[in-house]
Structures are given as C-alpha cells and as structure tokens.
Amino acid sequence: MNKIIPRLLIAGYFSIFIIIIVGLGWAWHTYREAPDQPIAYSHNKHINFVGLECTHCHAYADRALMPGIPPLQTCMECHENVATDRPEIIKLTAYWNKKEPVPWINVNYLPPHVYFTHKRHVKRGFECAECHGDIAHMDKVRQVKSFRMGWCVTCHRANNGPTDCWTCHK
C-alpha cells in the first residue's frame, strides 16, 4: 500500500502536465494556428516561380489604408487558361462562375481600435516582410509577427516613429 501511493501521486502529478500540454495545443489549434483557406493559394509559387510583384494583386498596398485583397478577376486574368485542370484552380473557377467572392480568412489581423495605415508604412520604406514575415516564401499564410502593442511600439521606437497613443488609437 505504502509503495503504491507515491507511484499514484507521481503518475497524477505528471498527468497534470500532459493535460496542460493538450489544453495548450487545443487553444493554439483553435485560435492561433494558420487557418486553411478556401483555396490553397501559395504566395511562394506566385512570387518566386511566376515572378509576380506583391502589388500585382495587392494593388492598394502603397496608396491606401488597406492593401486590398485582389478581386477574382485578377486571378482569372491568368487562370482562365493557366493550370485550369488543377483542383485549386477548379475551385477558383467555380467561385468565378457563380460570381461569388472567395471567402478568404483574415490572417494578419489588427483589432478595430487600432488605426493602421498600410501606405504610410510602405512609403516609409518598410518591406512587406517586416510585418508579414517572409510571406514571399509562404505556401500557407501565417501570422509571424505578434502584432501586439509592445511589438508595434518597439518597432516605432527603433525607427523613430511616433509613440503617442493618438497615433494608433484615434
């Protein structure tokens, strides 16, 4: 009996940590993992192999608050003829034929109480990778930078950007 109790205690103690890891994993999977998009679009393929520029699709990246998600028309400029037999392009064509936009899931998201202007950062000379990670080599988009206030403020300080509250919280 005396030998069993310490063993049970040890098993129980370590089980708690296994439960914690499983819980953390569940939370990460549910809230933080890069989502599967309706179409498995690869930035890596289009930028490094096809040779497209970021602004080819995100036309407003350097001239508006939001970079803009390309309309289906942009995709169909090429994919009306290119790789039409591939499963992902078949899905794309189906959206096009139904005249429905692709319901992309937002990955690099800033909450509504943050005023962020895309063009200001691009015009200041920041590369896309500074905030989006090496998105040019991503097959599946994921959020690399935390986009927490501390991260933004550290970068603003490092680059002599404004750090007063009003800049980002209008």
């Binding site: 040890i10 098993a11 103690y13 370590f14 296994i18 890891i21 953390l24 993992e33 935390s146």
Partner: peptide, 29 residues
Amino acid sequence: FITLPDVAWSNSMMFSGILVIIVLAIISL
C-alpha cells in the same frame, strides 16, 4: 512552451513534449 511564439507551435511539437513528460514520469517512478 507557453512563452513560445505561435509560429513555433505544431502538433508534432506537442506530441514530442508529451513524450518528454511521460519519460520524466517513468524516471520519477
């Protein structure tokens, strides 16, 4: 684990972490 950035997480990393805990439990026993 908690202080790791999100990009460092994956299912295999969690599985490996659980294996570490199991081996530590065996060591303690």
